[in-house]
């Protein structure tokens, strides 16, 4: 698979004696949306964190965009150099910064100039319909609004890869459906390679080009 954007080769992750990810091999094509489906504790979140570089695999290799980023128990590239957007399960919006401030941190980290930053922030916020609450703090947002803010923060740096860890687990079903549609549209527009972790089969089917199930640290391709 020469065109695969993410490639995992026999990746294993243990926590103590517990094997959480067990010799997983997986390929994700460029522009593909892959859903990782599985019950809680099956290792899907850990797999996502391995791709992001937040965990180090004990064995196996991880390749992103043709570059080997992890091998032989070492991360070769730190998360910040992997060009990733990540939406955490708890969203991890920084509570002391406004929505804009959250996005701005990403852009100043990339040393972008101020004018450029403001344009980019406005562009992304309007894309996810978050402009109206740009200057509010996370604590002042509703669940759906927080969701949008988190997604905006994940894509504002124009990453090559978007990783979402059950981003909608805390939303009600109406909101979930609406956001799913928006996310699909967004993906259509941005064409970012995306890995989406969920335990909800419908959600997975609605968003993903391909669904992979995980069970007991193993992936079941279908």
């Amino acid at each position: 698979m020469a065109n695969s954007f993410i490639r995992l080769v026999e990746v294993t992750k243990r926590f103590g004696n517990r094997i959480v990810v067990d010799r997983v091999s997986l390929d994700v094509a460029e522009g593909e949306v892959l859903a990782l489906l599985g019950a809680s504790g099956c290792g899907k979140t850990t797999l996502l964190r391995l791709i992001a570089g937040l965990e180090t695999p004990e064995e196996g290799e991880i390749w992103i965009a043709g570059e080997r980023v992890a091998a032989r128990g070492h991360n070769l590239l730190p998360p910040r150099a992997r060009s990733i957007g990540f939406v955490f399960q708890d969203l991890a919006l920084w509570p002391h910064l406004t929505v804009e401030g959250n996005l701005d941190f990403v852009l100043t980290s990339a040393r972008m100039k101020k004018l450029e930053r403001q344009d980019r922030i406005n562009e992304v916020l309007s894309l996810v319909h978050a402009l109206p609450f740009a200057s509010r703090y996370p604590a002042e947002l509703s669940g759906g609004e927080q969701q949008r803010a988190a997604i905006a923060r994940a894509i504002v740096g124009r990453p090559q890869l978007l990783l979402l860890d059950e981003p909608m687990s805390s939303l009600d079903s109406d909101l979930k459906a609406a956001l799913s549609r928006e996310l699909a549209t967004l993906q259509e527009a941005l064409k970012i390679t995306t890995v989406y972790v969920t335990h909800n089969r419908e959600e997975a089917a609605a968003l993903a080009h391909r669904v992979v199930s995980m069970n007991g640290g193993n992936v079941e391709h279908r």
């Binding site: 730190p78 990540f86 955490f88 399960q89 991890a92």
Partner: peptide, 15 residues
């Protein structure tokens, strides 16, 4: 402080 705050910054490219 949730670990994810720091991880989010790490992924976002903050030194």
């Amino acid at each position: 402080i949730p670990k994810s705050f720091e991880e989010a910054a790490e992924v976002a490219g903050g030194s």
